[in-house]
Amino acid sequence: MIRDNHGRPINYLRLAVTDRCNLRCFYCMPEEGINFLPKPHLLTFEEMVRMVTLMAEMGITKVRITGGEPFVRKDMMAFLRSLKNITGIEQVNITTNGVLTAPLVPELKELGISSVNLSLDTLDRERFKEMTRRDELPNVLKTLDALLENGIKTKINAVVMAGKNDQDILPLVNLSKELPVSVRFIEEMPFNGSGINKEAFMSHTRIIEKIREACPSLKKLKDEAHSTSSNYSIDGHQGNVGVIAAFSRTFCGSCNRIRVTPTGTLKTCLYDDGVMNIRDLLRTEPDNKIIKEKLLAAFSSRPKDGFEAEALRSAEVSESMTTIGG
């Protein structure tokens, strides 16, 4: 097992396979979108498989595929199959916005995908259109239905902002009453190309207070090891709810994850500005042992938390989340 310089295990890779997305969520990117990268700048699937194989040999056991939106990249299903065949990788999970995913769910089930995180900030079609700048809610709900019908563990991720979709908190909570899903509410982060909206920010404590007002039986659950969410049960609900303090950064002390962006930048913390270019290393270094040594060196100099990582950046946070990996 890999351990960082603070004694934390590292066994979880979040791998962004593309910076492209078919939505334009305002908390993630500007309305006009971003300048998407030319294909040669992105890691190829073959390079990703080599990288994940090396990391699995070092102790990575879980991979989450993110984007952008993963399923806008061609040949994703073949790539997922390759990941599942890597010795040492025990779980492959996916985060998706669900626009293109519904027809693929039976094959995801057959592949043995462990779980899917579905981004869904509102159940109101007009508000969905306002937030994502696309009218795609029906397709997202089709994906939710397909995931549940196929018995794939499903988590719903909702970024909450006051005056934008805070009125959707309780309708989303009610999904966990009728369905066996985990609904997680996420603090807004500054990764939208322009920084955090301070007036709209809702802290994790404020979100929980709002839920508790409507659901007095809200009870804290014991969280899984390295969980980023604080999770709660509600009497009579099949599923559960949780909050992710993504901006408050309360879970850094147990962080077991690293990130690789679509261009191959290694991030040992979401809030750093990249610590290593794996893409160029993969393209120039044939010796896997040397690559592993450089990875270990990067893992051995992690910041203690997101605040330290942000303070060490060469510039203020300004990038879009779609260039990092959701």
Rank of each mutant, 00 (worst) to 15 (best):
V92E: 09
Y27L: 09
V17R: 10
G326I: 14
T265L: 12
V105Y: 09
G59M: 12
M77A: 02
T322C: 12
D168W: 14
N277Y: 06
E130M: 14
N157K: 08
L23I: 06
G67M: 05
R50W: 07
E293H: 09
N165E: 12
D305K: 02
T323S: 09
L54R: 11
E308P: 00
S314F: 13
L266H: 10
R8I: 08
G67N: 09
M29H: 03
M76R: 00
C25M: 15
Y12W: 10
T122W: 08
R81V: 04
A200W: 04
P216A: 15
M29V: 03
S318N: 05
D273F: 14
L104Y: 12
N150I: 04
Y271D: 11
L137R: 03
L172T: 15
A246V: 09
L43M: 11
F36V: 14
G253Q: 04
L179G: 07
K294F: 05
L111S: 05
I278N: 03
R127I: 07
G59P: 09
N35I: 07
N174I: 06
S301V: 13
S229V: 02
N277C: 11
F71C: 05
D305F: 01
E69G: 12
D223A: 11
R184E: 00
K304W: 01
T261R: 12
S115E: 07
I208D: 00
R134T: 15
V72L: 05
P103D: 01
V317C: 02
S203T: 15
D121L: 07
V63S: 06
N240E: 14
G195L: 03
P40W: 07
C25Y: 15
K109N: 10
L54H: 09
S115L: 02
L266S: 10
E319I: 03
R50Y: 06
K198H: 02
E316K: 13
N85W: 04
D19G: 05
G33K: 02
S114H: 15
V17E: 04
D305L: 00
H41S: 11
M77K: 00
F45V: 02
G7A: 04
R283G: 03
L296G: 01
T61V: 13
G326W: 04
S233K: 06
E46I: 03
A158G: 08
S194K: 15
E107V: 00
E293Y: 07
Q91K: 15
Y12L: 06
V140F: 05
N240K: 06
R279P: 00
D235W: 08
K164G: 01
D19H: 07
E319V: 01
E187P: 04
N35F: 05
T122E: 06
L42S: 00
E46S: 11
D4M: 11
A102H: 13
E285M: 08
S194M: 03
D223R: 03
Q167K: 14
D287G: 04
E308A: 05
N165A: 13
K129M: 12
T322I: 13
E136S: 09
A162V: 12
E47D: 12
I2A: 06
E31W: 14
V260S: 10
R133T: 09
P38N: 02
E47F: 11
